[in-house]
Amino acid sequence: MMIRAALLLLILFTFLPSVFADEVGETALDVQVREIAKTLRCTVCQTENIWESGAPLAKQMRDAIRERLELGQTEPEIRAYFLSRYGDYILMEPPKHGVNWLIWVAPFILLLVGGFFLYKEVVHWVKDTPTPPTQPLQPLDDQARKRLERELES
């Protein structure tokens, strides 16, 4: 009984949000506003796009996007407008030119450099670890051999 109830709750919580989302009925214009807003940074927030931000300026920017879409402007035109007002800072994803390339390649450089240092360090540890002195194996005497045979037979 408890398992059934838990399953029912799980199904409700999993599928109900999507049902409600359908009922909200996002228009094609809403989708376009959201897609553009997600790519633009809220200039009065820290690392937040204007779609997610609750700041008044972010809301006004979303309204400005909607108005421009209604006027027939395309997504690149709207992004270009914001870029012309705020510069590269407005873009959530820095454009791939000039010093911005550093942002794109630096993580991989850091990974390579880190990997190289790790490799060097591991090699160093392996080299420096003293190996225990090896002793030649003594042949089994008769008593030990007989005992071993007994153990294996039993």
Partner: peptide, 13 residues
């Protein structure tokens, strides 16, 4: 009124 002027002038605050 609509904040458009601030956006046009790239105002941060």
């Amino acid at each position: 009124v609509k904040g458009q002027l601030a956006i046009d002038y790239g105002v941060y605050g």
